[in-house]
């Protein structure tokens, strides 16, 4: 009971801070401290959002589709790379530095190149997202595989387990927490990556919408789409958390909630 009320209070703090910012913002534009055409009020942003709702949803679908395809492909490649590097030491030695190197290239720098090479359709966006997703998944899972408890491996070996069985029952589940923390970082970046690539050239997507409203100086719509992108990222992170809870039910349980000391039986 106490814990619940504490929780509510904890949730209250961010709500208050967000409301305070919104109030200040509304005040700034209401009293025209900042000219209205440069900073639309929250109310105007909402109005623009409602007005363009259909259009925004259309573009969101495109961005989300790119994000989804890119992320799933990135996860698959990252997972396979991690398995390969774990299974075969030369692959680890050859690929690990390369993978780290690719991460030093900023996405902003390669996005225009990708657009030039692969055109205005979905391909360059997906490739960019794959590049963004690949790294945290591959490295996270590889670390999980490699840091697996040696004694656990010995125990399974003493039972006569095959390499595959050790992977399936020990290495893979041990790497799951790393996978999910990688995925959480990834999904938010993936949306940003998609928008960035759309910005640089495309026919549809939230990035394209952004460039269009920017050209027509529709700042209210600009703000509306910025919020939409934030909301989408938050929803995706929430989705990953939900998925993690579903896939890792043991994390939820309270330690020693039941069973306790029944040594005298």
């Amino acid at each position: 009971m106490k814990r619940k009320s504490e929780n509510t209070t904890n949730n209250l703090y961010p709500v208050i801070s967000v409301l305070a910012i919104l109030a200040i913002w509304e005040g700034l534009s209401l009293f025209e401290i900042v000219p209205n055409f440069m900073l639309p009020s929250p109310a105007e942003t909402v109005k623009a959002f409602v007005h363009d709702f259909g259009l925004l949803m259309y573009h969101s679908r495109v961005t989300l589709a790119e994000t989804l395809v890119g992320t799933v492909t990135g996860i698959t490649i990252g997972f396979l790379a991690a398995c390969l590097m774990d299974r075969w030491e030369p692959a680890y030695k050859a690929m690990y530095p390369l993978i780290v190197l690719t991460q030093t290239i900023p996405a902003v720098a390669i996005a225009p190149l990708l657009v030039l090479w692969f055109g205005y359709k979905m391909t360059p966006k997906i490739i960019l997202i794959v590049l963004i997703t690949f790294f945290p998944i591959a490295i996270g899972m590889l670390d999980g595989f490699r840091n697996v408890d040696r004694d656990g491996v010995n125990l399974m070996r003493s039972m006569g387990a095959s390499r595959w069985q050790i992977f399936r029952h020990l290495k893979f589940p041990s790497a799951l927490p790393n996978f999910f923390s990688g995925l959480r970082i990834t999904v938010a970046y993936a949306v940003v990556g998609a928008v960035l690539a759309e910005w640089l050239g495309g026919f549809a997507g939230l990035g394209v919408y952004m460039t269009r409203v920017k050209k027509s100086f529709a700042y209210d719509k600009m703000f509306a789409v910025i919020f939409l992108i934030s909301i989408i990222s938050l929803l995706l992170i929430w989705l990953v958390n939900a998925l993690q809870k579903k896939c890792m039910p043991w994390e939820r349980e309270e330690p020693e909630a039941a069973g306790g000391e029944t040594e005298d039986s």
Binding site: D149, D151, L155, S158, M159, W250
Partner: peptide, 19 residues
């Protein structure tokens, strides 16, 4: 040869993710 004699290692080594 592994797989013939059962072995309980020092830690209990119950995997936390399995019931």
């Amino acid at each position: 040869t592994t797989g013939r004699i059962s072995y309980m290692l020092q830690k209990d080594l119950l995997f936390p993710y399995k019931t």
